[in-house]
Amino acid sequence: MAQFDVYANPSSHSKAHYPYLVDIQSAVLTDLVTRIVIPLGRTSAFGGESMKGLTPHISFEGEQFLLLTPQIASIPVKHLKNPVGTLAHFRERIVAALDLAITGI
């Protein structure tokens, strides 16, 4: 598992609006049985609205999503199957959203 890998959301309840989870956990923490993730929500589900900096727009697989930083969570590793892509190229945007959520700057 690599930081910023994207996985299909395993939840049958939420995957319609939040089809993907982004693994944001450092690769240093490989011994944990959970991973810290942030869901990607379809922009259309939010009327195109975002919170500047906190929920940045992310393009993935030809669609537009919001990185839903306030919905950060952990999930058991066993629920994250094969990654379907990576958002490593959005690293700065993701880290900036986390910084805003944690430090307010």
Score class of each variant (00 low, 15 high):
45 A>S: 14
16 A>R: 07
3 Q>R: 15
13 H>V: 06
55 T>H: 03
9 N>G: 00
92 E>Q: 15
49 E>H: 12
46 F>H: 11
74 S>Q: 13
37 V>Q: 06
65 F>T: 03
48 G>N: 05
14 S>E: 06
38 I>R: 01
18 Y>Q: 03
103 T>S: 10
58 I>T: 00
6 V>E: 01
87 L>H: 08
2 A>M: 13
10 P>I: 09
60 F>D: 02
3 Q>V: 12
27 A>V: 12
46 F>N: 00
27 A>I: 07
41 G>C: 10
98 L>W: 03
99 D>R: 15
79 H>V: 00
88 A>G: 12
80 L>W: 05
67 L>Y: 05
52 K>G: 00
81 K>A: 15
103 T>E: 11
82 N>F: 10
93 R>T: 14
73 A>F: 08
66 L>W: 02
86 T>M: 07
56 P>V: 03
9 N>W: 02
90 F>W: 05
8 A>V: 11
35 R>L: 10
29 L>Y: 15
28 V>H: 13
51 M>R: 07
76 P>V: 13
67 L>F: 06
85 G>R: 11
93 R>Y: 00
63 E>M: 09
10 P>L: 09
84 V>P: 03
89 H>F: 09
62 G>Q: 07
36 I>A: 14
91 R>I: 05
16 A>K: 08
65 F>W: 02
42 R>H: 10
1 M>E: 07
19 P>Q: 02
82 N>M: 14
